Simulated scan of single mutants.
Amino acid sequence: MEDLGRRPPRVGVPSYPDGHHRIDDDVLWADLRVKQFHADYTVTQLCFDADLVLRFAGEARERGIDLPVVAGVPGVVDAARLLRLSVRIGVADAARFARSHRRTAGALLRPGRHTPDEFVRGLAAGPAAGTADLAGLHLFTFNQIEPTVRWLSQARRAAA
């Protein structure tokens, strides 16, 4: 990017609080350390565990990553679609995820819509919330923009 001479005004790079199904954790951390000199922030990839995102943000600081960490949050989307997408992109090992996140896994298996409510509450109240230093939220809409915007508007009104 530096050699191109025309850098976008802001650049974000991905990070993986739950690891990556094809890339070793040590490689992910090394790559993020190098990328931080070319980026303005990092966005965590799809994850359903707020505590894991908070621990990741803290570990990033311990590993010398000083990019602002933006938590990637699944927006309002059909639960079955979100589950299919999660399996396809390798969000955690399915059996491990189901065992340790029974409530979320159960919600994804029921018909209806997934909302970010529980995850966002977990980010705000999790054990590491006070030390995680999250810079904000990035809502993954999965092309379900209208319901996610409605949810965001309601959440903003409730917080005011």
Results as ranks from 00 to 15, higher is better:
1 M>P: 14
33 R>C: 07
153 S>M: 12
146 E>W: 09
112 G>I: 11
107 A>F: 00
11 V>Q: 02
128 A>C: 10
88 R>P: 02
58 G>Q: 11
110 R>F: 01
48 F>W: 10
46 L>V: 14
51 D>K: 01
55 R>P: 00
44 T>L: 04
89 I>Y: 09
119 F>Y: 15
71 A>W: 08
129 A>Y: 12
150 R>C: 02
27 V>H: 09
74 P>F: 06
118 E>Q: 06
56 F>Q: 05
76 V>Q: 05
3 D>Q: 13
50 A>Y: 01
130 G>R: 13
69 V>Y: 05
96 R>A: 14
67 L>T: 03
31 D>E: 05
6 R>I: 11
19 G>E: 00
57 A>S: 15
127 P>A: 14
146 E>G: 14
140 F>H: 09
117 D>T: 15
109 L>S: 10
20 H>Y: 06
72 G>V: 06
19 G>Q: 02
106 G>I: 01
154 Q>N: 15
121 R>D: 14
160 A>N: 09
56 F>C: 06
91 V>G: 04
134 L>G: 13
58 G>N: 08
154 Q>E: 15
158 A>E: 14
24 D>L: 06
111 P>F: 06
58 G>S: 12
115 T>P: 11
33 R>H: 14
137 L>E: 11
90 G>E: 08
106 G>T: 02
118 E>S: 14
82 L>P: 12
42 T>L: 10
51 D>F: 02
30 A>Q: 10
159 A>W: 15
70 V>P: 12
14 P>N: 02
111 P>Q: 04
32 L>A: 03
89 I>P: 01
151 W>F: 13
85 L>T: 10
11 V>M: 04
84 R>Y: 08
4 L>D: 11
152 L>F: 09
152 L>A: 15
77 V>M: 13
123 L>H: 04
11 V>C: 09
37 F>K: 01
43 V>H: 03
40 D>V: 03
148 T>D: 07
157 R>W: 07
112 G>R: 03
